[in-house]
Simulated assay, not measured.
Amino acid sequence: MGFGSDLKNSHEAVLKLQDWELRLLETVKKFMALRIKSDKEYASTLQNLCNQVDKESTIQMNYVSNVSKSWLLMIQQTEQLSRIMKTHAEDLNSGPLHRLTMMIKDKQQVKKSYIGVHQQIEAEMIKVTKTELEKLKSSYRQLIKEMNSAKEKYKEALAKVFKITRPWALCQGLCFAKY
């Protein structure tokens, strides 16, 4: 594998991890929302139950006994549990669920930003590897043509020089041979 293909595999792995994390966070968010809804409904049901029992029991209680005291204590504790459940549900909604929602938005923004940067880098890489490489190849081809043209001109000039200097060299050779 080359450097580029390793990076491509890494990019895909990072995207899979980000998708998995987002799905998990969305699942946790749904769970928390259902938990809040359930706790609020439970608290409301407990409060309604206490209100009904309280109305009925206050009408029928003409005397104070241990049983009636226990019954009133049970009603009060159920009302207290109802208030606690409602408070916890509201706290869960305004605290962790809100922060979780913001975290999901941040992760989605980070993923979007990551994808944008990756696309920009990939486009730059394509530009460098393809466009600039093609320019360099074209420039190289042009330089080869110029070199071949210059080589031909050099050979022509050399041939002219040999034509001009060769008879003289022959003449010199003949002239020296006579002496």
Score class of each variant (00 low, 15 high):
5 S>H: 13
5 S>R: 14
7 L>F: 05
8 K>F: 12
9 N>H: 12
11 H>S: 03
12 E>T: 03
18 Q>F: 09
21 E>P: 00
21 E>G: 01
22 L>Y: 02
22 L>S: 00
22 L>E: 01
24 L>V: 06
25 L>M: 04
28 V>D: 09
28 V>L: 08
28 V>F: 13
30 K>Q: 14
31 F>I: 09
34 L>S: 09
39 D>Q: 03
41 E>H: 11
42 Y>K: 03
43 A>I: 06
43 A>C: 04
43 A>W: 03
51 N>E: 15
51 N>L: 08
53 V>R: 04
55 K>R: 10
58 T>P: 02
58 T>L: 00
63 Y>V: 13
68 S>Y: 02
73 L>F: 00
77 Q>G: 11
78 T>S: 10
79 E>F: 15
82 S>A: 10
83 R>H: 07
84 I>K: 09
84 I>Q: 01
87 T>N: 12
87 T>E: 14
89 A>P: 01
90 E>S: 04
91 D>V: 15
93 N>R: 06
94 S>T: 13
95 G>W: 06
97 L>A: 01
97 L>D: 00
97 L>I: 08
99 R>Y: 07
99 R>I: 07
101 T>M: 02
101 T>S: 02
103 M>S: 14
108 Q>A: 07
109 Q>A: 10
110 V>F: 08
113 S>E: 10
118 H>M: 05
119 Q>Y: 04
124 E>P: 04
125 M>R: 15
133 L>V: 15
134 E>M: 01
135 K>W: 07
135 K>P: 08
136 L>Q: 03
137 K>A: 10
138 S>T: 15
139 S>Y: 14
140 Y>S: 05
140 Y>Q: 05
142 Q>Y: 10
145 K>E: 15
146 E>I: 03
147 M>C: 12
148 N>D: 03
149 S>K: 12
150 A>T: 12
150 A>V: 10
151 K>R: 06
153 K>Q: 09
155 K>T: 00
158 L>I: 01
160 K>H: 04
161 V>K: 05
162 F>K: 13
164 I>N: 03
166 R>F: 15
168 W>A: 13
168 W>P: 02
168 W>Y: 08
172 Q>G: 13
174 L>N: 03
176 F>M: 09
176 F>V: 15
179 Y>I: 07
